[in-house]
């Protein structure tokens, strides 16, 4: 908390500078188009009036922060949640496939990690591939999974959730292998002097030791699975979701909509990561860890 108090002023200052830069950039980037429009209309506005015009275009090159804020506010609070134009609706569509994929991916990652820690042949043969797979742009197969599954009549939530699963299980598997191996030799020896069975060592020593690693990698995984869900919505002209909102905005040059969708995605991401972090802290505290 002390740390947060010390950095709150710098953070706010930098955010203020960023917003100021944003306004300046918005004015200068929107100016050429506005000048053209005014020249065609034969209007000669004053400097302040001109700046006002650049900040209130319907399809600006760079929308001003307040335009984005108004759009986000309107499409979040003023429209019915079930409406096609509500950001809450689109966020929910993306969130549901993110969560489904995240849950599945975490379970799969833990399962693989348990296998790797206990079966030597699996460790030697699978682990290099898991590490190598981190270097591959996995996201590139997202469109294919969606289209191919649509060809066999699997549409909607499942394909997107599969992409999220795929993206989120790698961090969890790698983190859990590290976590399950984190107990020191001393502790393992102690368990052995207690004549503990393999299952007992696993449940009483390895699992508790791996919990901090699990939550750290789940934070990465949940962010990755959100990206997976958004990209999964891009290729097929999906009808709903943050990704489809981005794509529709790109097609019709609705820049304000794109930025609003970005804001929605960021809010969802921040919420998910915070939620996992809080869950991790609660679990660790209930297991007797010292709050750091």
């Amino acid at each position: 908390m002390r740390w947060a108090g010390k950095s709150i002023i710098p953070v706010l200052t930098i955010l203020a500078v960023l917003i100021a830069v944003w306004y300046v950039a918005a004015i200068s980037m929107n100016a050429p188009f506005q000048r053209d429009t005014n020249a065609r209309g034969g209007v000669q506005p004053g400097t302040w009036e001109f700046i006002g015009q650049t900040l209130s275009q319907p399809k600006p090159t760079l929308p001003a922060p307040h335009q984005v804020a108004v759009n986000v506010f309107e499409s979040t609070f003023l429209r019915k949640v079930t409406s096609n134009r509500s950001l809450v609706y689109h966020s929910w569509v993306t969130l549901s496939s993110t969560l489904a994929g995240f849950g599945l991916g975490t379970a799969l990652g833990i399962l693989i990690a348990v296998g790797i820690v206990h079966i030597r042949a699996l460790d030697r043969s699978l682990m290099p591939w898991i590490i190598a797979s981190q270097t591959i742009p996995i996201l590139a197969i997202a469109p294919m999974i969606v289209v191919v599954l649509a060809a066999v009549n699997v549409t909607g939530l499942v394909p997107k959730a599969l992409i999220s699963t795929y993206l989120s299980f790698f961090p969890v598997a790698v983190g859990m292998v590290k976590g399950l191996r984190s107990p020191e030799l001393l502790h393992l020896d102690l368990m052995r002097t207690y004549n503990a069975s393999a299952a007992q060592i696993f449940w009483r020593l390895r699992v508790p030791a791996s919990v901090p690693f699990l939550f750290a990698s789940m934070k990465v995984a949940v962010a990755a699975s959100l990206v997976g869900a958004i990209v999964g919505e891009l290729p097929t002209g999906a009808v709903a979701g943050i990704g489809s909102k981005l794509l529709a905005g790109a097609y019709y040059s609705q820049t304000i909509d794109i930025w609003a969708a970005l804001v929605a995605g960021s809010v969802v991401a921040a919420l998910l990561v915070t939620l996992v972090g809080v869950a991790g802290r609660v679990v660790e505290r209930s297991m007797g860890a010292q709050p750091s």
């Binding site: 010390k6 950095s7 710098p10 953070v11 706010l12 200052t13 930098i14 955010l15 996201l139 934070k219 962010a223 959100l226 990206v227 958004i230 990209v231 943050i242 981005l246 794509l247 905005g249 790109a250 820049t255 794109i258 930025w259 969708a261 970005l262 995605g265 960021s266 991401a269 921040a270 990561v273």
Partner: peptide, 21 residues
């Protein structure tokens, strides 16, 4: 002190969404 928290937060965001812009 100002940039680090922002940088940490941004790394969790779906930055890929700026592609259309």
């Amino acid at each position: 002190r100002g940039l680090l928290p922002i940088g940490n937060m941004v790394s969790a965001l779906p930055i890929i969404g700026i592609a259309p812009i």
